Simulated scan of single mutants.
Amino acid sequence: MIKVSVLYPKAEDSTFDIAYYRDTHMALVRERLGGACKRTAIESGLAGGTPGEAPTYIAMGHLYFDSPSDFEAAFGPHAKEILGDIPNFTNVQPTVQVSEVIE
């Protein structure tokens, strides 16, 4: 299994509408990716590693797939639409990481 993590770095001028992300954007993502996407998870950054420190990421979204090729096949046809929705909830340019899930 793989996890595609979309990481939204926290900066002084970052904005992020977590309700829109949860209710609208991730619903769009799940609908477009269909059954290839096994599950999703959302994290909202609270703090960094030391007391009073800001979080490294304002938010993170995680998408789970059986394989990288399953992700590519599902995401490719909808990439423009999904990526085009980003300005509706944040002014942050996300970073993406694909990881193998080891259990």
Rank of each mutant, 00 (worst) to 15 (best):
K3F: 12
V4M: 07
L7R: 15
K10D: 11
E12C: 07
D13I: 03
F16M: 14
D17P: 00
D17R: 00
I18F: 10
A19V: 13
Y20W: 11
Y20A: 13
Y21V: 03
D23H: 14
T24A: 12
T24V: 15
H25K: 05
A27T: 04
L28E: 03
E31F: 11
R32N: 02
L33I: 01
G35E: 04
R39H: 03
T40D: 14
A41T: 13
I42S: 02
I42M: 11
E43W: 08
E43D: 12
E43M: 11
A47K: 06
P51V: 12
P51D: 14
A54P: 12
P55L: 02
A59V: 09
M60L: 11
M60C: 13
M60R: 15
G61R: 00
H62A: 08
H62Y: 11
L63Y: 04
L63N: 09
L63V: 10
F65H: 01
F65G: 00
D66R: 01
S67M: 05
S67W: 03
P68T: 03
P68Y: 06
S69F: 13
F71N: 00
F71H: 02
F71K: 01
E72R: 13
A74Y: 00
G76W: 06
K80W: 05
K80F: 04
K80G: 10
K80H: 04
E81S: 04
I82P: 00
I82W: 00
L83V: 09
L83E: 15
G84V: 06
D85G: 02
D85W: 03
I86K: 03
I86P: 05
P87R: 10
N88L: 10
T90E: 08
T90Q: 06
T95I: 11
Q97F: 05
S99N: 10
V101L: 08
V101C: 11
I102D: 03
E103H: 11
